[in-house]
Design a protein around this nucleic acid. Sequence first.
DNA 1: TATCTAATTGCAAATTATTAACATTTAGTA
DNA 2: TACTAAATGTTAATAATTTGCAATTAGATA
Lengths: 139, 139
Amino acid sequence: MSKDFSTVLRTKGLKNTPTRKAILEVFPEDCKPINAEYIFDRLKKKDINLVTIYRNLDSFEQAGILKRLNLDKGSAYYELTGNHHHHHIVCTNCGSTEEFGAHDIENAINKISKSSLFGAINTHSLELFGVCKKCATVK
Amino acid sequence: MSKDFSTVLRTKGLKNTPTRKAILEVFPEDCKPINAEYIFDRLKKKDINLVTIYRNLDSFEQAGILKRLNLDKGSAYYELTGNHHHHHIVCTNCGSTEEFGAHDIENAINKISKSSLFGAINTHSLELFGVCKKCATVK
DNA sequence: TATCTAATTGCAAATTATTAACATTTAGTA
DNA sequence: TACTAAATGTTAATAATTTGCAATTAGATA
């Protein structure tokens, strides 16, 4: 069920290196967002330079393979660009995330985009912050 | 028309220092978000330490005097916690911001909050990114 | 009003996340 | 197989923010 990253890379005009495939393979199927450090840890045995990871995260984002998120966690998180547009709820206690998507929010945002004085609205970011069930009960 | 920051500080249990008032006075009435560096520059003649500014921005946010924003600009931006809830549109070209508020977006977010599996949703952040009219025409 | 104490500030150094410069290596093409 | 642009490793730099600690001060209290 795992994605064919070689093809993805080729399609995007990016060279198909073992390092790149290794990085992309770290990304969870379920779109859970991860950061550079996490990838670095997971690939410790492969001895991949952290700088290379940063560089590739950037390339992948440019290419549209990854989406960069702003989860207020101090570092940038990325997720595989899935086929469904969604947002995240972040637990301010443990950092866990959950995704959600809602048509009425997207519609409302689109309406704003159209009526805005701005020349063009290209993207948006929306995150909810709260306390997840686990943290809420443990406390 | 300018706010009485001494009272605000006292109310929040924060000591009423000249430094603090100076910092708060830098914040524009129109809620335009600013960052630590901007405040530092504006207060150069008062010779206030940048660390002190960072510390106070943090205290002020804790106290609810300021709101911290995530505008994808490399540093944290803050605005006076106004009485009206709103969000920002950020120009990805020049960094200028414009605010907007929309009831249907808030309502949709509230609905999500209620139906979420999360224990509690406390806050949310929503930013739109695009190119402002000025940048759109100049280009 | 003088004194006291916790809160605040300044200063220097540390940390964290990220980027830059540059030499070396390698994937993909000719 | 050779070539070249792209990718990688290494080291060092940068930007934003935080920490530790000593000196100062606001505001409470005697």
